[in-house]
């Protein structure tokens, strides 16, 4: 679990290529203002076109990370506002991983706040996965697991029990069907890390499901 994630710092700390194509100061106030008005409207429209189609994905990620509806809504709302402010950053890229990255950062900030206030006891990766690995005998017979009979609720539970950094790659890969490259972009880790996390997440999940069997 990364403890040093603070939402938005990576954006605020860099210089923004702001206002290229902006009217210069020599232009008359009225035309500049009008131009600006159009630009703002266009910007809102462009943002809506780029970001709103991914609202379900954003909410799904937030809901899985925060595990409660209200916080997830708050987080997505804040993330969208933030994304709107930093929209200039998005240059010809796919909006989805960029947007989901902002959602993710917002969620982690909330999770961190929760931990500070002791409101929820978050899954402790060091402690809890060791525990799982210690108690589950590794059987090289995964066929034992009757996956087809598995109930949705139990599967959901197992995913929820994963540490956030494993949970998020599962959600992004399996439910949102992002490519490894896109996940790497969203989570801000190298491609190799994505693959190893995903593989470990699947192994953990399988163990949990087997154990519950």
């Amino acid at each position: 679990m990364r403890a040093d994630i603070s939402t938005g710092t990576s954006f605020t700390d860099c210089n923004l290529p702001f206002g290229s194509g902006r009217p210069t100061g020599l232009q008359s106030v009225s035309s500049g203002h009008e131009d600006k008005g159009n630009q703002v409207v266009n910007r809102t429209q462009r943002f809506e076109t780029a970001a709103l189609p991914h609202l379900d994905a954003a909410y799904n990620l937030a809901r899985w990370l925060l595990r409660d509806d209200h916080s997830a809504q708050d987080a997505v709302q804040e993330a969208y506002l933030r994304a709107f402010r930093f929209f200039e950053h998005l240059r010809g890229e796919d909006a989805r991983p960029w947007l989901l990255g902002i959602v993710r950062n917002t969620c982690y900030t909330l999770l961190q706040k929760r931990r500070q206030t002791g409101e929820h006891v978050e899954f402790d990766e060091e402690r809890d996965t060791d525990l799982i690995e210690a108690t589950v005998r590794r059987e090289d017979n995964p066929e034992r697991l009757l996956l087809s009979r598995l109930e949705s609720a139990r599967l959901d539970q197992a995913i929820e029990r994963l540490a956030p950094r494993f949970r998020e790659v599962i959600v992004l890969r399996e439910l949102e069907e992002l490519s490894y490259q896109e996940i790497a972009q969203t989570v801000e880790v190298p491609l190799g890390t994505v693959m190893s996390r995903l593989s470990r997440a699947r192994a953990l999940l399988r163990e949990m499901l087997e154990k519950a069997e």
Binding site: D56, N60, W64, L150, E151, S152, L155, I159, L175
Partner: peptide, 9 residues
């Protein structure tokens, strides 16, 4: 399995 059965909010 996850695609088919896990919840997508």
């Amino acid at each position: 399995l996850i695609k088919a059965k896990a919840k997508r909010y």
